[in-house]
């Protein structure tokens, strides 16, 4: 039982990272970013290739992929996604889904559908405390997830640009009035979200297999996690991630393996009905 609790917490770390970037974009730009899974997938490939060709340790390559995807995200927003900000929700979905399709087919074309995996030498080793095994990799991932989300929280609350992002998400017109360049803020936020997706993709590459079709599953998870935690709430993503991981893990323990995902989705639906702003979310005043 204790082992299962450890499993869930470690899995929650990955889920939190998957959800946080998705949540951020929705909070600031009101865009359901269907390209999020594709960004995770492309970052996973980046990690794979950097590891395969140059032997860079996946944990070290987080820095590389985050920087790279910040730039990619920034450019993607500035020249493409920006055109649908403020348009109706369908338009934003069509555009981001289009990007997702292009990215997946790009990956299929260049890297084929082969399953790939990153296997650093320490893969599979872990700390044994009594009967409980804590794999080092997943412990590292949880640490990275906590550090990154905390940094994001500090960034949003303590820095000028972070405050500007929050101001923009609260009231875009008022933000503009006080001199915030909202185009820049939007691009910056998208870059930030892409960098977080890249961190998630990098870490996922170490624990799971990398394929062009991996994006779908994680996009679905990102959705659930972001809703559970409250859309737009970065600390909420940690709560959402851990709740989903607990639900999936104890779904297996209590009801059997076949119920792994059902339990998570049932909680998701209940939250939507009972607390539509998420477990720790609160209503933004801009929405009132």
């Amino acid at each position: 039982m204790l082992q299962q609790l450890v499993n869930a917490l470690l899995l929650g770390g990955i889920y939190a990272l998957v959800g946080v970037g998705f949540s951020l974009i929705y909070g600031v730009m009101n865009i359901i970013n269907l390209a999020h899974g594709a960004l995770i997938m492309l970052a996973a490939y980046t990690t794979f290739w950097v590891f395969q060709l140059y032997g860079v340790d996946p944990f070290a390559s987080i820095v590389i992929s985050m920087a790279l995807f910040f730039v990619i995200g920034f450019i993607l927003q500035k020249y493409i996604v920006n055109r649908v900000v403020g348009q109706n929700v369908l338009m934003t979905m069509v555009l981001t889904y289009g990007f997702e399709l292009i990215a997946v087919n790009f990956a299929l074309y260049f890297w084929h559908a082969d399953y790939r995996a990153v296997n650093p030498t320490y893969a599979g080793t872990g700390l044994e405390i009594g009967d409980v095994v804590v794999p080092y990799i997943k412990l590292g991932i949880l640490t990275v997830a906590i550090v990154l989300t905390s940094l994001l929280y500090l960034f949003m609350t303590r820095t000028k640009i972070g405050n500007a992002i929050q101001a923009t998400s609260l009231n875009k017109d008022a933000a503009q009035l006080v001199g915030i360049d909202i185009q820049y803020i939007y691009s910056f936020t998208y870059g930030l979200s892409a960098a977080l997706a890249a961190a998630a993709g990098t870490l996922i590459a170490i624990v799971y297999t990398v394929t062009p079709s991996m994006e779908g599953g994680f996009l679905g998870k990102a959705f659930v996690i972001a809703i559970l935690g409250g859309l737009g709430n970065s600390l909420g993503a940690i709560v959402g991630g851990v709740v989903l991981a607990l639900a999936e893990t104890f779904g297996v323990v209590v009801f059997g393996a076949a119920y792994q995902q059902i339990v998570g989705y049932v909680i998701f639906l209940l939250v939507l009905i009972v607390r539509p702003c998420g477990l720790v979310g609160r209503r933004f005043f801009s929405e009132l």
Binding site: Q4, V252, A257, Q260
Partner: peptide
């Protein structure tokens, strides 16, 4: 003897069982 959902992304909980 158990089945799990197709397309699952994590087997650690099942493998613990």
């Amino acid at each position: 003897f158990q089945k799990y959902p197709k397309g699952t992304t994590d087997l650690s909980s099942i493998m613990t069982q």
